[in-house]
Structure formats: C-alpha cells, structure tokens
Computed example of a mutant assay.
Amino acid sequence: MILSNARLIFADRLARGHVRVTDGKIAALSDQALEPLAGEPVIDLGGQFLAPGFIDIHVHGAQRRDAMEASSEAFAAICRHHARGGTTALTPATVTATSESILRVLQAAQEYRRQPSGDGAQLLGIHIEGPYFSKEKPGAHRLDLIRNPQRAEWEPWLAFDGLVTQMTVAPELPGALELFEELAGRGIIPSGGHSDAWDEDAAAAFAHGMRHATHTFNCMSTARRRGPYRVAGLLEFVLSEPEVLCELIADAHHVSPTLMRMLYLAKGPDGIVLVTDAAAGAGLADGETFQLGDIACVVRGGVSVTADGQTLASSTAGMIDLVRNMVQLVEISLVEAVRMATLNPARALRLEARKGVLKVGAEADLVSFTDDFQVTHTFVGGRNVL
C-alpha cells in the first residue's frame, strides 16, 4: 500500500512525504507522489503526521487485563488496547510475585509469541519488574513478597532465550551486582529502580552494567543527609550519568511538568524513554476498580491508585498521551518527543536497525495522528490494527 500526503516524523526532522509498504516493510520514502502499482491501495493521510510506531517497554495491562494473568487472552487484550494509543510493540511487565507466578507469565508469553500475529501491538518480550526491590520503595507492590536476588531463583527466568528484555532491580541489595552483570552479558536491560540506594550503590551498579533507570523519580532515592553530609541517591546518579537511559511516565500525574522539564534538561532528547506503566485500569472510567497483580486499585482523577488512595498504581495513559504532554507541557519539539517513544526504546532493546525509525527496509510499524494528537491509524508490520 501507499500512505500519501503525510508529514513524516524522522528522528531528526519533519518532512512532507509519501511511504510505500511492501511485505510488512517500508519499501520507499519519497517527497514526490508515488505511482500506485496495479491493485495497490492508497491511503491519503491528508497532511496528518506519520511516525514510527510507539514502543512501550514498561506496561502492565489494560481493560482489567493484567500480564500476571499469564494467558494469551490477557496479552491479546493488552496489545489491542494499547494499539489505540499508537503503540505497535510492547513488553508487558510483571509485578512482585512468587517465582512460580513469574515463570507462568514467561511460559504464557513464550507461547503467545508463537501464535499468528493478532490485531494489536506486537509483544516483544517480558520486563521483570520485581521482586528485587527495596522495602523502603515498594510502590504498589506487595511488601511481603519483596526479596533479595538469588541465582537459583532468577536463573530459570533467564533460561527463556530472548524472552526477558529487562529486569528492574534495586542496586543496593545483596546479590544485585552479580545479577546486573549477568543481565548485561546476556543483552538484557539491567535497570535500577524501586530503590533506596546511596550514590556509591548506584555507581557500583553502573560499573556492573546498569545503563537504565525504571520510571525516573518514582520509587527512587534522592539526595539526603548522611551525618552532616548531603549525599546523592539513585535519582541524582542517573540524572548526571550520560550513559544511563531514563524512563519517564509523562502522564503529568506520576511526575509533574517541572520535574519532566528538569529531566529533559539533564538528559536531552536521546536520554529519555517514554513509558506508560499502564495497568489494568487503562481504558476504564473514573471510579472503576481493577487489580494490579493481586492488589485492589481504582481509577481516580485520570490515574490509577491503590484502593486506599495512598499510592499511585500505574497510569491509565496511552503512548500518544505522553508524546502530547512532552510537547504541550514540557514544550519540546514533536520530533524530540516522538524520538523518546520510538528510536530511544528501540535502542534500549537493540532493535534500532528495524524498529523505531522511518527508513527503507525497516518494519512498517507506523502510527498516524492529527494535530490534536488523535491516533487515526496504527500499522503493525503493515497491517492496520486500530
């Protein structure tokens, strides 16, 4: 097919143009109208934006479905819902749970990936978030299940070849450095998060391979006094280290616009990955209830909170909402905001040769949207799944 009359969003510029898709890949990019082949459909986008599809590397669920259900039905529902927000690929995240529960998620995801492509975003792998957290920074995770890393437990999780894409670990825990080193060696993202680390803990984790920060600002230690001295925490370490890629839940609830702007000024457009961290409350109306793992939660004021209202429990956002917020609230360029939702997560997953970019030969994962950030088409491998 041909997608014509679009404002193409490249990694470094906007340009008027036309795109040909053949066999699920971008076959041509042109600033001149492309002549249709016999029987080739043409979709006239009428000047809408056309960008690489968004890649969400931290998402738990949607529409009352949760990755922890460990079922193809749950994964399919999550992938369908998030395609509406322009997401073409995602990595569902676990919550702190028993080892057996995490294994079930991995087994189900492995089976789901063997099935024919569905009508939603592509499931790239699994982000294991928890159980290796600080008990001081649990967020909406069960405190009684938080524990220290043990090779006998995590080694079977990593035996699913190519399935685990990321693990979130508090750097200060006994056994964390060994795990970071193992993850880095296997090409899995070693990410610091849910942490009460001191500056030296973060530096040690960096020396052992940590190059990523989970939902920056949220559940993360910050500068405090140790005796008479002011000492940095994990937050200041990742802000100041150019090689660390920082996730940001840019829903304007988890992190205020001022903090979002501060992160942008510290990390620049190449140092931020936008993530929804959306849970089963995504797609529900205000006041509706759902479960995050086995924790009761409710949608309130456009965000998810635990039933007691005391703790944020993931967002209800789609990726297009995050891009809009970065443009409208942080006042960065659309090109930069889209890069944070496309090329940057593709780089984190080492997929930038084929995903997150507009170039000939890349997979035809594409999203079109209007000037007011309404998604009109989501293409996964050239198939319209919206």
Rank of each mutant, 00 (worst) to 15 (best):
G39N: 12
P190S: 07
M262N: 04
L183C: 13
Q166G: 01
R324V: 02
M340N: 11
K135Q: 15
A62P: 01
A97L: 04
T222I: 06
W198Q: 08
M167S: 00
A282G: 05
K135Y: 02
E153A: 03
L50K: 08
E182I: 03
V338S: 10
E172I: 14
S4E: 07
D308I: 09
V275H: 01
R147Q: 15
L248F: 06
E200C: 03
L245E: 05
A109I: 06
M68D: 00
N384E: 14
I249V: 14
L158W: 10
L45G: 03
P174T: 09
P174W: 09
L259N: 09
S256G: 13
N344G: 09
S134M: 07
F237R: 14
T342D: 07
Q48T: 05
D56S: 02
A170M: 09
H215M: 09
L173V: 10
P190Y: 02
E69L: 05
A97H: 08
L45N: 01
D23M: 00
L8M: 09
L103W: 01
V367M: 11
G118I: 00
E247D: 15
D196I: 02
P257K: 05
A348T: 12
R225L: 15
Y264S: 03
N344H: 09
E200Y: 13
G227C: 11
P345R: 03
L158K: 13
R142M: 14
A348L: 12
G361H: 09
E247W: 03
T376P: 05
Y112G: 07
V367Q: 13
L103M: 12
R80M: 11
G120Y: 02
G187C: 08
V244P: 02
P149D: 15
G24S: 05
F373I: 14
E200F: 11
E352T: 02
S314D: 01
P138N: 11
A51Y: 00
T378A: 05
Q310C: 04
T342W: 00
W198G: 05
A202L: 02
H254A: 04
I249Q: 03
E100A: 11
M220P: 10
D144M: 03
N148I: 14
E181Y: 11
A27K: 12
Q291H: 06
V273A: 14
A83T: 09
G17L: 08
L245T: 15
K355P: 06
L14E: 11
R211T: 15
A11T: 11
R354Q: 11
D251Q: 10
D308A: 11
A38N: 08
T91R: 05
L263G: 07
H18R: 06
V19W: 00
S191N: 11
G118A: 08
E363T: 13
A207T: 06
P257I: 01
L263Q: 13
N5Q: 09
F290P: 02
G356Q: 08
L183G: 11
L386M: 15
M326G: 07
V385M: 09
G281C: 08
M220H: 13
V255M: 10
H194V: 09
R225A: 12
T94Q: 07
P242G: 03
L235P: 01
A346V: 12
D270L: 00
K25I: 15
R16A: 14
H141C: 10
L351K: 08
Y229W: 04
H254V: 04
L349H: 04
R104F: 00
L145W: 05
P174I: 12
A285C: 02
S72Y: 00
V299P: 05
Q110N: 11
G139D: 04
Q328A: 07
I126C: 12
G162W: 02
A197C: 08
R7W: 00
